[in-house]
Nucleic acid binder design. Structure first.
Lengths: 194, 194, 194, 194
DNA sequence: TATGAATGAGACTTCATTCAT
DNA sequence: CATGAATGAAGTCTCATTCAT
């Protein structure tokens, strides 16, 4: 009895799960349909092709990530920079855990991602970077970060470090659902920022 | 005029090019054969399947990367830590440029990588991390790095930052063969290490 | 308009026709699909591989043969032994005509027949032999056959003779749809049995 | 240092072994070359194609069989009919054992046997049948066989029975190299002949 | 003559997509 | 709207055959 909207979202969420677990090519439309609790044909009622479904699912995912970063930068405005980076790491960690296998699903690939989509993705990434640069800027204004920091480099280093750290940790604690503590990493990064 | 050894290597190198550009599934055996200047069947004289070829190509690639890191840690022994990280960034950059599209080619995926292979990859990654941790240790001994640094975190942060930085730069300067200057990034990282 | 059951049977019957005419390797899935009036892919909806299709088709065929023999031994129970052997020859003849080229399709070959399948075939053959031995036994009890006959030898000789006779006749009258008259052969065999 | 003649025969004999064990399609030229102790290319020095090799090998085999029958009919001329049939069974048994898997290799199949070859095979078979009919005739003249026997049927029944008997026995005693005793079968057949 | 690396036609199989129910 | 049987394009792999050495 799901409404049309619900049905579409259900399929989208199922496709997040399946694509991230199996990658674009190994994911079968049948798998996704099954995971969404519908028949194969139904998928085609909402998405015109596997490619489109894939793109919509990336969109959906990036938008969610974007919102997370937005919240960190704007909503937690009263927090200090250290707390923000800490929260960013925690949230990023959750995200990575969910999409641990999404390697194939990066914007790099020709794999079923149209030119327009790639452009959109790049814009989103740019937007996220700018958001985070603003966060650095705020830190500078507040005197939490040294004035002469290169904002772009700072942001890229933070993101790269978090990704690298969580990827390593997750692979090491495979199967373990144990929380990963990013405090030491944040301390390390703060040294470069202050 | 190519010896058996040459032919195998030719195919391997062609497969690096094709796999990294197209990913596992989009790469057709025909493409690789063509790139290597041989017929489809010839590929199967040297590799029993697409999977095997893929694995051998990963092996080949990781081994090359491993050698690069090894050289930086051992051969450039007289250099100071800053110079080493700088060289690491430069070399990593060349590598990334060559394998810019290799996203799919990470150990994450079930995509044609056997259990044993994945284990081997993990071991290699571990070996590389340990090599770099030794580099940090050397830096501490020489007094170039503070004593209380967390070696593992330092290494992961360095690698993640370099990757992130180069990925961004390469995507921005797409098509440009212009050298990327990692100096600012190294400066940033050195602040966290000292 | 065909139900799922029908479709499977249609493909099975088409495969009997094609496999028996061309043998396992010369029969192309495309040929079978075409003969069944479906597309190549459809065959794979009902049988997971050429091998499986082949095995199922052998099963189907042997079961039909088994039923024929069963009917002769049990249903025509009031007939005398001579009439039974005559009917066996006639029925066997029809069968051979239908599967005239099925030579490859014997249990001998490694050709796409699994261990389990081969066992099953041997059991079926054994069952048929036992059925026919029972027929001989009945003949002895009724006094139509001499008491000291070796039942196993009798059965093998009858089957071998019929096969040999029909094969020869069919090859000689190739294309002719003319009935083959097994009376003389039966007379010959009865001399050995009485 | 084998002469050209020897080399050809070696390949022919190897192909008997391989074709009979694996059937036409499963036998690889490589297998045959290997079994003959030569390289793949060498096979093509003596036979223009797999088909031709196959045909020559059938020819070679049938000729050998023909000679056996000939010897039984002509050379053992002083023996009585019972002894001849016994010898036929024994020799046929050896033959079957050697070519136990030759099912595919029967003249039935389109498998790599040309029209001309098939004709030749049929002639050979006809020749063998005629030889054996002569044997029956001799038996009649000598008074060992009843006058009113149908020679053709007698011959077909004898051959079919022997084949059926040996096939069954061989399959039952799989692996056993134990001699099979055709005496009971010959007794059975003699009853129909006398 | 002998070799065996290279070739490429051809066959099995998969799975995104369609469409009649 | 939902279904899932049918479709057929496309890709992997095999192996008979060729040919330069």
């Amino acid at each position: 009895m799901a409404s049309a909207k619900d049905r579409r979202t259900e399929i989208l969420q199922a496709s997040v799960k399946i694509f991230s677990k199996q990658g674009f090519h190994n994911a079968k439309i049948d798998d996704i349909a099954h995971a969404a609790g519908v028949a194969k044909g139904t998928v085609y009622q909402y998405f015109s092709s596997k490619q489109e479904l894939f793109q919509e699912m990336i969109k959906y995912t990036i938008e969610r990530y974007s919102q997370i970063v937005q919240k960190i930068v704007y909503v937690y405005n009263e927090s200090n920079i250290e707390e923000k980076i800490y929260t960013l790491a925690i949230e990023h960690g959750k995200f990575i855990k969910e999409y641990i296998e999404m390697a194939e699903v990066t914007p790099n690939h020709s794999n079923g991602v149209s030119k327009e989509m790639r452009l959109w993705i790049r814009e989103q990434q740019y937007y996220i970077l700018k958001l985070l640069e603003k966060m650095i800027e705020d830190g500078i204004i507040r005197g939490e970060i040294r004035k002469d920091v290169d904002k772009e480099i700072a942001v890229l280093s933070i993101l790269g470090s978090i990704f690298s750290y969580y990827e390593k940790e997750i692979r090491t604690h495979i199967g373990t659902s144990q929380e990963i503590e990013p405090k030491p990493l944040v301390d390390f990064l703060m040294r470069a920022l202050r």
